[in-house]
């Protein structure tokens, strides 16, 4: 049974690209097509890992990240946060501080700036799911 990866991004082309590439690497991948993804629709997919764009028009990816981390079924899912905006790294760090997160504990998570090189992404996914 392949591990399932959920892609949340407002760019349909990026969703299609990442899904194809991850499936070619042996994972099961799917993307959320909704404009405003909810916690319920994420939980429905039962992902083993989430790739989450934090700058989306409908709602901010940071709020999804915040909700996931406090939701019982999703709190342990590894997350790869992505964005094209450079200072989004700062936003993510601030958000982690706000959640009072111990970097040593909890599921693995990382911020990656777009564009993401495919080999780098695949190695991250592999290490998170090991």
């Amino acid at each position: 049974m392949p591990r399932k990866i959920l892609i949340i991004d407002d760019e349909p082309d990026i969703c299609a690209y990442l899904a194809a590439a991850l499936e070619d690497a042996g994972y099961s991948a799917c993307a959320l097509k909704e404009e405003k993804p909810t916690l319920a629709s994420i939980a429905r997919e039962k992902p083993d890992l989430v790739i989450l764009d934090i700058m989306m028009p409908g709602r901010s990816g940071l709020s999804i990240y915040r909700e996931m981390r406090s939701a019982p079924g999703l709190a342990g899912v590894p997350i790869i946060l992505v964005s094209g905006i450079q200072n989004a790294r700062g936003l993510v760090e601030a958000e982690k501080k706000r959640l009072d997160k111990d970097p040593e504990k909890g599921p693995p998570e990382i911020f990656v700036e777009k564009p993401i090189l495919l080999p780098h992404l695949l190695s991250l996914v592999e290490s998170f799911l090991r």
Partner: peptide
Amino acid sequence: AHGVKNLIMALEGGLYMLNS
């Protein structure tokens, strides 16, 4: 830069789909 990065990824995606 933000817009361009998304575009680059989408173009990379296009190339990946074409190649694979």
